[in-house]
Design a protein around this nucleic acid. Structure first.
Lengths: 353, 353
DNA sequence: ACAACACATGTAAGCCTTTACATCTTTCAA
DNA sequence: TTGAAAGATGTAAAGGCTTACATGTGTTGT
């Protein structure tokens, strides 16, 4: 490990200058074939690989992008991460991953780290920004921006300081709700999420708006985003109906919450979809494997991730703002399908161990 | 973005030498408080952040480690990735992520990329090495080793060329099988995996060995590692019993396969655990939310990942070989619990959106 | 045979830090 | 008041590569 060769060693042994070695490595035409071969031989002989950190310094390119996101334990972010990383890898650029629990404040030390890395770009993604740390995200953005291009993957980022790609979260949620209404449901409760808000880009807002707009009842918010939260939400919701009639359908903040909701309903002896329709959000891989298969909204996050990477690589002039359209994936948990559990899965995905 | 300041600009504006600026940034005591303050002011004024890539070149440290693994779409690898990344982040070191579909051959270009990055260490993890690409992994390892410390997270890596951390896959599988046997099962089939093998470290070997050792019947192997594979495996297994009696229990290669198996059993009208006991492997977060809750083996991959990072950071002398002991997580799918679906979950985990 | 050029190669500056060593200031004892 | 020791600061080389520009060699045309 101590006797690592450098371009000088190669040049010396090949009897040429370092410029020539550099040219050979770059595959430049400005070098005579015989010279090229001679140099190549020496390179091969020592299995010499130039240091990208030195060349990066010289060329002001790190061939690395950064990605800041919530924990990928959540399959939704795993999806996003995979898509971005693969898109980057296709162009031989590496991806540095930074994960933060949702709502975390960014420390100055973290910002310094990101800037210090002099990456070729940074993707800030997920619901990293919540009401609580919004300022912190803005601060991060403003500090980083002079040093590297930035793209945000965030729902309805309401300012125009940088490239921003989003999924239409509220639109997707409306699709789910309308689907339930079309199926005849009039008492629909929302499960999970972050509670009431004025932000029209949120699922919570969409829920209230769709229902009140039709004169349908709105149920009290329950909050959370994990399966465990989902269980608790349903328990609270159904046991705390003060005079209100029991809902016939649940729209869940995401598939994780829906998963918990399904479990809790089962525990309470309520059949899905007969006794209660359930829809989720995100179309995570397991949504096709819950019992019954979960109807959900697909936000097409992979495409968003890929675009984000491309924007970073092609210069940020390509796109400035883009909203991806969600699609509704109908399975069995909403009762739309007359005969659950036939071979008519909405979408089959696979992943290996 | 063009007017990025360097240490020279700061030095000039502060009227000191770059060495002094460097010392101030490093927090060295060898600088007079008044000078320090003067320099600090200028640094603050321009929000100057030194380039880690330049300092990296100078100090031969990139403060970055690499992680090569299968796709983190599989929650098992997501777990591993989260644990490693968080451990690294605690020490302000970044993690570069490289994902490859299982069994992929490593191209020379990829090896060159890794070496070129001059990271402070590399973790090679997951079942990246299969029979098919074993040579390719060895080659990667040998090329990378002279350039950076390496640790493998792989089951029973049968050579002593580098640090290797593993989970006792076969041991864990044996635990699962013995558990079923203890519950009275005598006809146990394996679902998923890669088929027969002589490698005693594999789940497949453990399966054959445990059963034949007791004179119990061995069912034909079915292969695969995704939920979709699991469905197919069960279908094939149960419809292709040529004279053999139907098994009363299934040991699955992993939880993903188990998930598919559960679905297929449901579709075929076979009750779990009454008509068929099922156990999985990996203890993925959804294992507590399948219907019924999945009994599974936890390989403690997080601890392994954290150790791997620490080995890289503390110098690889700390550990050379370590096998982590798995634990059995008993839920309802094996029939060991007298009353499924009470509040007696084996372990509750949470994750956010 | 020689100018004029094309092409191959070398030289050296630059990229941005760190740090050993040299130099300049203080401080304080004698 | 002076000299030595201690402390602060500066100089310059190193780290490993790229590349504009300078130099050297080989063609071609006449």
């Amino acid at each position: 490990m101590s006797d690592r060769k450098t371009i000088f060693d190669i040049a010396e042994e090949a009897g040429v200058s370092i410029a020539t070695v550099s040219r050979v490595m770059a595959g430049s035409e400005k070098v005579r074939p015989t010279t090229r071969d001679k140099v190549m031989d020496i390179i091969q002989k020592h299995n010499f690989k130039p240091s990208m950190i030195a060349s990066g310094l010289s060329k002001r390119k790190s061939h690395t992008i950064g990605m800041v996101m919530p924990l990928i334990e959540n399959p939704y972010y795993a999806k996003l991460c995979v898509a971005a990383q693969q898109e980057a890898q296709r162009s031989d650029i590496s991806m540095q991953l930074y994960q933060m629990a949702r709502g975390t404040m960014f420390t100055q030390a973290f910002v310094d780290l990101l800037i210090g890395k002099r990456m070729d770009g940074l993707i800030l993604s997920g619901d990293i920004a919540s009401e609580s740390n919004n300022e912190s995200v803005m601060d991060l953005m403003r500090q980083v921006k002079p040093y590297m291009p930035l793209v945000m993957i965030m729902p309805l980022w309401a300012h125009d300081e940088c490239v921003c790609l989003t999924s239409d979260l509220s639109g997707g949620f409306r699709m789910a709700i309308r689907h339930l209404i079309r199926l005849g449901h009039e008492r629909i409760a929302m499960v999970g999420g972050t509670g009431p808000t004025e932000n029209p880009g949120t699922r919570e807002y969409a829920y209230v708006d769709e229902l009140t707009g039709r004169g349908l009842p709105v149920y009290p918010f329950t909050t959370g985003e994990t399966p465990a939260d989902g269980e608790l939400c349903v328990l609270k919701l159904l046991s705390g109906l003060e005079g209100q009639e029991r809902p016939t359908a649940l729209v869940c903040f995401n598939d994780l919450v829906a998963m918990g909701a399904l479990r809790q309903l089962k525990r309470m002896g309520i059949e899905v979809p007969e006794g209660m329709a359930v829809v989720g959000c995100d179309n995570l891989f397991f949504a096709g494997y819950t019992e019954p298969g979960l109807t959900t909204v697909d936000f097409g996050i992979e495409e968003t991730a890929r675009l984000a990477v491309r924007v970073l690589m092609d210069g940020d002039a390509v796109v400035f703002r883009k909203v991806f359209e969600p699609t509704l994936v109908v399975r069995d948990s909403c009762g739309a399908n007359p005969a659950p559990l036939k071979t008519r899965e909405a979408s089959r995905e696979s992943r290996g161990t």
